[in-house]
Design a protein around this nucleic acid. Structure first.
Length: 290
DNA sequence: ACCTACCTGTTT
DNA sequence: AAACAGGTAGGT
């Protein structure tokens, strides 16, 4: 489900509701999404910050007056982190329930809900709170903040010249945070065909891609993400970027720019949609305008 | 560099 | 009944 814009939206919406609060109670159903052992360790800790790296959320937890643990969360396809009223019944597929208490003694729940149970939560000890856990080391550069530099992209693509552009964008070690929706939208915005090999890009094409990546992701963040079926933010609100999609989910429909029928294929194991005329196979030419 | 598995729910 | 879904770990 959630890619970088959705995870970032969740981070921003949870921040004011969660930071500064202490975990009074913590329960994990079975050992699936989170080990019961890890879950018990959360009790008594105070959340002091929420960060994001790629599609991971990182909760910085303080014990006494110094940072002690990172709570790492990956939502995978259908995971949700939701603020929930203490007294309300829990939604189906709630796997972790945290009772948060603020200085005013008001209690709120932060719950992890996930129909498909692919998502995970786990702990890492904090060595230095300015340093993210080593789990994050293999992720590629952050594309939005700061905006991906052309030279960085060039260097990253050079590591995997044989990958199709679609596969390269989906590879979290090339760039962190892009998934199936935004890979297709980015390639459309860059005017590049998804089946082109990363090693065959000319300098202009790398520039187009380097521009499109932060541009598309930033706009999606501004629209609070894409809600197709499952995604909602920390307050259960839907995103709006589904109204801005140019290609994802639109195979068989006319391209919004040129009217050509959008095509669908399978690349890197994922459904891929593109416009054969705005994303031409061989040409160096950028799509000119409307 | 690809495939399959992991799950449940929805759509064809 | 079968295909498909926003992701990725782990196998080959």
């Amino acid at each position: 489900m959630p890619e970088l814009p959705e995870v970032e939206t969740i981070r921003k919406t949870l921040w004011p509701a969660v930071t500064g609060r202490t975990i009074l109670q913590a329960e994990a159903s079975a050992n699936e999404v989170m080990s019961v052992e890890d879950c018990e360790q959360l009790i008594g800790k105070t959340v002091t910050d929420i960060r994001r790296r790629g599609k991971y959320l990182l909760f910085l937890l303080q014990e006494g007056n110094r940072p002690s643990l990172w709570l790492l969360v990956h939502l995978r396809m259908t995971g949700r982190l939701l603020i929930h009223r203490f007294e309300d019944p829990l939604p189906k597929h709630t796997h972790v329930r945290l009772v948060l208490q603020s200085v005013d003694l008001q209690r709120t729940l932060l719950i992890f809900q996930d129909t498909r149970r692919f998502g995970r939560m786990w702990l890492r000890r904090v060595s230095d709170s300015s340093q993210l856990p080593t789990d994050m080391d293999k992720l590629g550069p952050e594309p939005v903040d700061p905006p991906l530099a052309k030279e960085t992209l060039k260097k990253q693509l050079k590591k995997h010249p044989a990958l199709t552009l679609k596969a390269a964008l989906l590879n979290q070690s090339v760039i962190a945070g892009i998934g199936n929706i935004y890979a297709d939208e980015i390639l459309y915005a860059a005017g590049l065909p998804p089946q082109q090999r990363a090693g065959t890009l000319g300098d202009n094409q790398i520039s187009q891609l380097a521009t499109a990546i932060p541009q598309v992701l930033q706009q999606a963040i501004a629209e609070c993400g894409t809600t197709l079926r499952n995604y909602v933010d920390g307050w259960s609100r839907e995103g709006r970027f589904q109204n801005c999609l140019n290609v994802y989910g639109r195979a068989g429909l006319p391209c919004r720019h040129c009217g050509q029928t959008l095509l669908k294929t399978r690349l890197a194991g994922r459904t891929t949609t593109w416009c054969p005329s705005c994303q031409p196979r061989h040409s160096e030419a950028r799509q000119t305008d409307s």
